[in-house]
C-alpha cells in the first residue's frame, strides 16, 4: 500500500497542480495571475511527462563512462520524455514572454490589469 502511494506521488502532485492552474486561470482577476496560472498548468504537464519517463533501476542513455551493468542497452531508458519536456519548456518560455508583453501593452493602454475591466471588445 505504502509503496503504491510513493510510486503514484508525482501523479497526485500533477493532479493538484492542474487543479490549481485551472482555478487560477478561471477565477483570478489580475492578468499577471492568469499568466502565472498558465505557467502552473505547464509545470503540471512537464512534471507529468518527466514522471512518465522514470523507470526504476534504469540508466540514463549515455554510453560515455557508463557503469558496467548499464552497458547493456536493455537497462537504459528511452530519452524521449525528457526530450519532450525540454521542448515543451522552451515553447513555454516563448508563450509566457509573449503573454507578459501583451500584459504590459494592455496596462499601458487601459491603465489596469483587472480582466473584468479589460473589455473594450464585446458584443
Amino acid at each position: 500500500m505504502n509503496g503504491e502511494v510513493f510510486v503514484n506521488f508525482p501523479f497526485i502532485i500533477v493532479a493538484l497542480l492542474l487543479a490549481i492552474g485551472f482555478y487560477t486561470i478561471g477565477f483570478k482577476r489580475n492578468l499577471i495571475k492568469v499568466v502565472i496560472g498558465i505557467e502552473i498548468l505547464e509545470g503540471a504537464v512537464n512534471l507529468f511527462l518527466v514522471a512518465l519517463g522514470y523507470v526504476k533501476g534504469g540508466y540514463a542513455p549515455i554510453y560515455t563512462l557508463a557503469p558496467q551493468e548499464a552497458a547493456n542497452p536493455q537497462n537504459m531508458v528511452l530519452p524521449t520524455p525528457q526530450a519532450l519536456t525540454l521542448t515543451s519548456i522552451v515553447i513555454g518560455v516563448a508563450v509566457s514572454a509573449l503573454m507578459l508583453a501583451f500584459a504590459v501593452n494592455i496596462y499601458k493602454h487601459y491603465g489596469t490589469l483587472d480582466v473584468t475591466k479589460i473589455r473594450r471588445l464585446r458584443g
Binding site: L31, V34, L98, M99, F102, N105, I106, H109, R120, L121
Partner: peptide
C-alpha cells in the same frame, strides 16, 4: 489596446 486584448485572449 484592443489588439493586445484580442491577442492575449487568443494566446490564453
Amino acid at each position: 489596446g484592443e489588439a493586445s486584448e484580442a491577442g492575449i485572449k487568443y494566446l490564453i
